[in-house]
Amino acid sequence: MGLLDLWDISLALAALSLAIMTALVVGRFITERRRRNILEQRKLLMPLLLGGKKRTALTELAVPKWLLAALSVELVQLVRGDERAQIAAAATDAGAAAELQRQARRGSARKRASAVEALAYFHDDKSSETLALALSDKSPDVRLAAAMALAESGRAPAAERLMETLGLGVSENSMLIVSLFQKIAAYRPAEIRDLILLPTVPNSVKAAAIDALSASQDYGLVKTINELALRTDPSSEDLPRFLRALGAFSHPGGAPAVRHCLSAPTWWVRAAAAEAAGRIGMSDTAFKLGEMLSDPDWWVRFRAGEALVRLGSEGKTILSRISKGKAEPARSAARLTLAEQGIPA
């Protein structure tokens, strides 16, 4: 390649880019005109979708299907209950679901994911079928969106099957797994519970299942989580989530694991244990929590102080004593914790 070629190539590339840009500008002028048209059509579409009665009018209205699908989905997401079902039914009749099914199979991963997400609101067989198919899409985003959509509408496949298709805890570690499990637990709690018990399930997935169930007030879980926490490697990043769940249950059944973890070698476990001790109200740890105000890590000191306040008068007495002492950093930790809570030392 000679130097002259360089000049030619550069000219060709510059010309090509300008040609494409010109085409885009022309395209823009054309869509601009169409856009106004579409805004008009959108105005007509709204009352028909909301009206529910005049379904025939909706089918007769010649609007692009993508517009119908997009508007229906936006409306459906605003409401719930009967209204949601009515709008979805009217939209399905007019062909919105079919359009979304088409989008879910074709197009970029981004398009597919959006369409799959929207199909959550459409409960017909074809939509369910499309979603089931999307569970084995090549894009992980689409697979997760499909799982969420199915779970949202009570159609979730067995949790164990989801673990496999989504690669939960292996390639997929999204926090959205918690939301997915929560949705499933709303109607099939036992399945999510079983994930915590199964020895083959990775700890990160167990943590997600525990997070999903920690609002459930199912105290039967406390014993299981306690044992799980005692068994888990004390430097595990999942352990704080187990401890937090034990704290959220505020049940003494979690005390053994929490007590054990107060002396863990990693700061994140010690901090989470201190927090849980406060929430459970483990007054027998008050002395240990007082010691933890000298922990080398700020978070541990902060959580220990907070926990002592939660323990009530006993904890406050310890804080007050340490705040009058000389040893730093415990003294500052105690003094400022009390000051922050507005408690006289």
């Binding site: 360089l6 000219l11 590339l13 300008l18």
Partner: peptide, 9 residues
């Protein structure tokens, strides 16, 4: 080419 046309591209 290097200073102008490629820059435009």
């Amino acid at each position: 080419a290097i200073t102008f046309t490629f820059g435009i591209f």
